[in-house]
Amino acid sequence: MSYAYLFKYIIIGDTGVGKSCLLLQFTDKRFQPVHDLTIGVEFGARMINIDGKQIKLQIWDTAGQESFRSITRSYYRGAAGALLVYDITRRETFNHLASWLEDARQHANPNMTIMLIGNKSDLTHRRAVTTEEGEQFAKEHGLVFLETSAKTAHNVEEAFINTARKIYEKIEQGVFDVSNESYGIKVGYGAGGAGQTVRPGELPAAKSSSCC
């Protein structure tokens, strides 16, 4: 399938907050409470549509454990968007947000769009962090905020798509030099103009022949 843009995302946050479940809910539209914990990083992709433009999201789901941090940092490289996730039922995952944010600011590109996500909103009876606290933190740090449930799919589409919309707006405003890949954005052939489309599986040589 052709696309106008490709955005690279990264999902970060403490282990167990539901990062992998969010990704699976977004890419496969299902909730799988029992799966293997993430070691290193996992990968997912999905096509979305914004203003009639096809945008491909390439999403990296990282392991949250402290001891993997130095490795995880190498995955920040060239991400256009980040989902910073905490678990509304475990306050410590909220308390760690500042250190995650610092990590992201240090190792990602400064224009990376960060969405703060309070996950497991279905577990209202066990809530340990109020919605207001989440909103407050987001406001203080200039983030977009949503509460989601990977289980019921509540707000999951919105989390990924609103982030893409933000990035798209920045492109429109000329914040990014889209030819510079370190912003985590690639321009596809469906962007109009070139009139060329790329199909998965097409040989790289053929791709490059139509290169700018």
Binding site: L6, K56, Q58, S179, E181, K186, V187, G188, Y189, V198, P200, G201, E202, L203, P204, A205, K207, S208, S209, S210, C211, C212
Partner: peptide, 21 residues
Amino acid sequence: CGAGSAALRNGHAEAAELPTT
């Protein structure tokens, strides 16, 4: 390989999509 270095200059190629064949 020639194809490779040409693709290197090609910012558009989504490299990860290896020909599945």
